[in-house]
Design a protein around this nucleic acid. Structure first.
Lengths: 118, 118
DNA sequence: GTTGGTGTATTAGTATATTAATACACATGC
DNA sequence: GCATGTGTATTAATATACTAATACACCAAC
């Protein structure tokens, strides 16, 4: 998995779980790049992707800040469910293939939720 | 998404949901390739991947057949749960980011299960 | 042995993705 | 103005992934 995607996923998980809240700042691209020994552009690509997804916002001259979640942007409840659906399907198919029962799959999701949420 | 992956995912879903059962045959690579207007090797790549995953088996001279699910149940329950976990995590993070509640995410999975299972 | 059916190893061409180097634009504080 | 901090557009090099063309090995039935 590419570096920029690993970075984006990590930050996205922190925000989704509430461990990074709206207004919190994120380390600058150069800080992260120096810490990981990679190119700042690679970090920038991760930050930019998160900005496109509405997770972060650019604060001119300061850096990237966790954005305030705008529910309208995501659409209706049905639309948002439809967006997660493919990912859930993928997990379900894999789980069934492994011989897990529906109840066991639900249990895995419950565990995941408990670990993600603060 | 690449063609060979779409094919593999479709067949995998059919097997996981029980719509294709052990012993059932799968159309030959040339049949599928002709029907879709693509190269047989592309189909072969999908079939091969499914064989690696233990979903299909090669029956020399005849073709590919849905495998008996003994290998899938290899490993403890905890191990199998651990294997699905990353996929569930991905769905959960995306769902939370879209503002879905845990209950709503569980509901999406329930719907997915009901649609997949026969 | 011949025919007609499997799947696939190998090779090659093409497209796409990923990372990095460089130079730039903008904002802030002195 | 100047120094120092942001992020990034551009370009280029590299790696990886995907598809296809060809030729081959295998099996079953006649």
């Amino acid at each position: 998995m590419p570096i920029y995607r690993q970075l984006a996923d990590q930050v996205e998980a922190l925000v989704a779980g509430g461990r990074l809240r709206p207004g919190d700042t994120v380390p600058s691209v150069r800080q992260v790049a120096a810490a990981l020994g990679i190119n700042p552009m690679t970090v920038s690509k991760a930050w930019s992707r998160l900005e496109s997804d509405g997770v972060l916002e650019r604060d001119r001259g300061r850096g990237m800040v966790v954005a305030v979640p705008r529910d309208r942007e995501a659409g209706s409840l049905a639309e948002r469910k439809a967006q997660v659906r493919p990912l859930v399907d993928q997990a379900v198919v894999r789980g069934l293939q492994l011989g897990l029962t529906p109840a066991q799959l639900q249990a895995v999701m419950k565990t995941s939720l408990e670990e993600k949420l603060p």
